[in-house]
Write a protein that binds this DNA or RNA. Sequence first.
DNA 1: GACAAAATTGTAAGCGCTTACACTTTTGGC
DNA 2: GCCAAAAGTGTAAGCGCTTACAATTTTGTC
Lengths: 339, 339
Amino acid sequence: MVRTHRVTIQDVSVLSGLSICTVSRALRSLPNVSEKAQRQVAEAASKLGYKASAAASRLAGGSTGSVAIVAPTATAWFFAQAVEAAEEVFGDSGYDTVLVSLRNKATVRKQFFADLGNLAQRVDGLLLLNIDLAPEEVEALKASGLAVASVGMENVPWDNVGIDDEHAAWQATQHLLGLGHWDLAVLSSNEHSVVTETPRFRGFRRALDEHHLTVHPDLVVGAGPSIDDGRRAMTELIARGAKPTAVFAHCDEAAFGALTALREHGLSVPKNVSVIGIDDHPMSWFLGLSTVAQPVADQGAFAANLLCERLLNTESPQQHSNHLLDTKLIERKTTRHKR
Amino acid sequence: MVRTHRVTIQDVSVLSGLSICTVSRALRSLPNVSEKAQRQVAEAASKLGYKASAAASRLAGGSTGSVAIVAPTATAWFFAQAVEAAEEVFGDSGYDTVLVSLRNKATVRKQFFADLGNLAQRVDGLLLLNIDLAPEEVEALKASGLAVASVGMENVPWDNVGIDDEHAAWQATQHLLGLGHWDLAVLSSNEHSVVTETPRFRGFRRALDEHHLTVHPDLVVGAGPSIDDGRRAMTELIARGAKPTAVFAHCDEAAFGALTALREHGLSVPKNVSVIGIDDHPMSWFLGLSTVAQPVADQGAFAANLLCERLLNTESPQQHSNHLLDTKLIERKTTRHKR
DNA sequence: GACAAAATTGTAAGCGCTTACACTTTTGGC
DNA sequence: GCCAAAAGTGTAAGCGCTTACAATTTTGTC
């Protein structure tokens, strides 16, 4: 099994009796190759266990054979799930998966965009996960010439798959309102600028609107997708003197954190405060957390497939698509009627 | 900012007034380059924003500029943490991080080793996370010529960092024994062959030995590092009619699953059964899970650094090292004296 | 059958970099 | 100062692939 000399396209050429050029074309299923040649090449290649050198291919103008997944952070449950699902799809399509975590840091993010031009020559495509893009960032992405697809993003000029975030948040909020809660706190996803109109925040507000209620600024706080952030956020809310009777967290992990903080402050759930999240994390069942379930791995895999398709037929000027998967309210034990 | 022509080493050569060859050497800090030349090149390169083409570099015999992280699964908390920490280190050292998840599947794993030769030309190094290697797999890895480092592995012919798994398991088990529990169940890490001598299992058994107790086969069950697996494992144990008074889970996520299953079967923790894990997952605090804490991100970052060093000075025939980081028993509320 | 058009295949020139080797300059000992 | 050794620099040949473009073969038509 130990081969001293790497198998090159040259070897395939010799064995198949066809020119390197024809082999190259046959290997990539380009037009203008006779069936016979196609067969000979395929046979020779498989016999030799030939695999094109990614480096050489790339250098000559071909593809790099790898795609990058860009996530705000790689540790959150949602991202880890989506990344693994996408990695599987990419792997099956013969692509290496390069992982890029923005680590929730503005500097890293800036660095990423500054380096985009270089990244563009190392990968063929980008799978973006829930990144809230500024217009100039969208432009930079388009200018990079890379194929792009995303999960959980809005109004982007490429294929996207996600859930109806606004609706999911609405479902959660509506549930709370239906239980008679009017003083709702929200742990919003955007840590830095709570004011930002994230879809989930919009859904939250819309539900309030429908009940002729308004969002109280003191009851809004930012939290990243982690237990620690959720805990910190809830603690801050309590420190402000806020007295919500229910809390809507933008994701289950933040909700777990809220649960933690609430308990630390002697508040009982759901007796004193109701809590709901979004995700349906495996832990939620155990904790009895009410939530809005979303198919996570499916989203990652779906978007990855979309990207692979784009990568295949490059010239496709087709419109980009936006696929929304279903969400479902799951009532458990952290939400109950307001006394 | 839109550059139509990619900046090549040629451009740097012209601007600096030196030959391409000298530029190449200067850029890679090879010997035999005068300080003056070094300076000129550096200046020209930075002025042009030059970055070498990974593909060209690789093709010509240089490095690929990327490393792969191989994990048994990418979704478990431990791996997500370690991966992100390592990714940061690699990124800072200028390497792209290729993620490879074995997805806990034997077929994927086999595929990975079969494809190792090809992978070897796409990356410079490998960071292995907790992969239980067969001797021939170790050989294959060595034969690939790749630089390798690992996290949480035993007796491997390359740099490794981890914790003293045996000791950690001993600490957990010893804690249980100290509370008067004799009928201990263990959720072991190896799903497929429970018999395997994993370090944690050894630690478990050693603690038992010290108390002149023996491992009862009916109280041993395999579980992967996930809530679902832990739950399944504990359920199976209960279905077998096993009546342990305490459970040692090889990781916190499996412990969470055990907690879940226990509750589903009407068993109260710690009243009826005590439970302890290893990790100190952020959720453990909230759940009051007793555990043995280990520094996860540190291990990933440390190993990544070790790999980067190896990558830097290739000729180093130095002995490989094995670094063990400290663990600490954390008593919380899921363990108590046997009544 | 003859001939143009279409289909297939081959030739050769790079892609941007590394590296053996040749060449030029500097260094240092006497 | 002279000369060999050392240090620095340049030349040129690839690495394995893609791709214009040229060459060849096949096809179809009258």
